[in-house]
């Protein structure tokens, strides 16, 4: 089944492009993590945090170096000329901010944080939602009532405020972001899985497993869960960009990441400098966020179409 879904996704050119964007995002995030670890290991100020007052407000390199600068000088070899042009373009390619810090490097670090937030909050929220949803749907009765009570309570609290309040209580910083987003966003998955597991509970394959004397845990997680797992996958692809958006928002408000270049912090910084004509930092972050989130949204849609039999009927 999964191979068929993968083929289905790869068949469409747009979705293939989106998958490439997601792969690139992952690679950049891993690269950012490596750079971050390196600077931690050697215990130096990272180059993306280095204040360089002589290079403030440098525009992106393709604006700084118009084509004349890479035109052939007298007696210059063709190789040298290409090399010089490349060097010109690769130096602060996306410009610098108001403290002379490299925008490209900071964007890479922002990608690292966004990726971490997406993964870690999913690792918190998806197991909670999965276990509670399956257990509630399978056992029914008072277990179900307890879990339904828990999630109806959680969902009646205004979402964003709840996230912000949790992170305020946990403390400003990445941990607060993880906790705030992770502990509140399992409700949707839990509700969907509960309803789906309820439908499967009395099907014949479950009856067969039960009559073979299998334990409840085995039936839930080995027999029912694989049959409803597409819901988990779809939820993951939807909540990942949502978590990124929330992190940007929180960091922008100053409740999220502290002292590291997150996308939210970059937007907050760029917003104030926009009035002084520094448009490139905001543009860079906006375009990157747009690309990543759009890719996730489109892949999420395609996944839902491929996995949800109801929507497949609609297409035909």
């Amino acid at each position: 089944m999964w191979r068929g879904v993968w083929r289905e996704l790869c068949r469409r050119r747009l979705i293939r492009a989106c998958l490439w964007v997601i792969a690139a995002f992952t690679l950049v995030a891993v690269y950012g993590e490596v750079v971050y670890r390196y600077y931690q290991a050697v215990d130096r100020t990272p180059s993306y945090q280095q204040v360089n007052l002589s290079e403030r407000y440098l525009p992106p390199s393709f604006l700084r170096h118009p084509f004349e600068s890479v035109r052939q000088a007298a007696g210059e070899s063709a190789f040298r000329r290409v090399w010089r042009g490349f060097g010109n373009l690769a130096y602060r390619p996306w410009g610098t901010d108001n403290l002379g810090r490299d925008v490209l490097q900071r964007t890479v670090q922002g990608a690292r944080i966004a990726f971490l937030v997406g993964v870690v909050t999913s690792l918190i929220a998806i197991p909670i939602g999965m276990i509670l949803g399956c257990v509630a749907g399978y056992f029914g009765r008072w277990v179900d009532e307890g879990i339904v009570w828990l999630y109806s309570t959680m969902e009646s609290i205004p979402g964003l405020l709840f996230i912000l309040a949790i992170s305020m209580v946990v403390g400003k910083g990445l941990l607060g972001v993880y906790m705030g987003i992770g502990l509140t966003t399992w409700v949707g998955l839990c509700r969907l899985l509960r309803a789906e597991v309820m439908k499967h509970r009395d099907r014949s394959y479950v009856m067969a497993a039960r009559s073979l004397g299998y334990g409840n845990g085995r039936i839930i997680f080995r027999h029912i869960l694989p049959n409803v797992f597409h819901i988990v996958i779809i939820t993951f692809s939807i909540r990942f960009p949502a978590a990124i958006g929330t992190e940007v928002f929180m960091s922008f408000l100053g409740i999220g990441v502290q002292g590291e270049p997150s996308w939210g912090i970059m937007i907050g910084n760029a917003r104030l400098r926009l009035w002084q004509g520094m448009w490139w930092e905001l543009t860079a972050v906006t375009v990157v966020i747009l690309a990543v989130v759009l890719a996730f949204n489109l892949v999420g849609d395609a996944l839902r179409d491929a996995l949800d039999p109801r929507s497949r009927e609609r297409e035909s």
């Binding site: 928002f249 937007i267 906006t286 989130v293």
Partner: peptide, 9 residues
């Protein structure tokens, strides 16, 4: 596309 543009932006 509208959904994917960040609210802040």
């Amino acid at each position: 596309a509208l959904m994917s543009v960040n609210y802040l932006v």
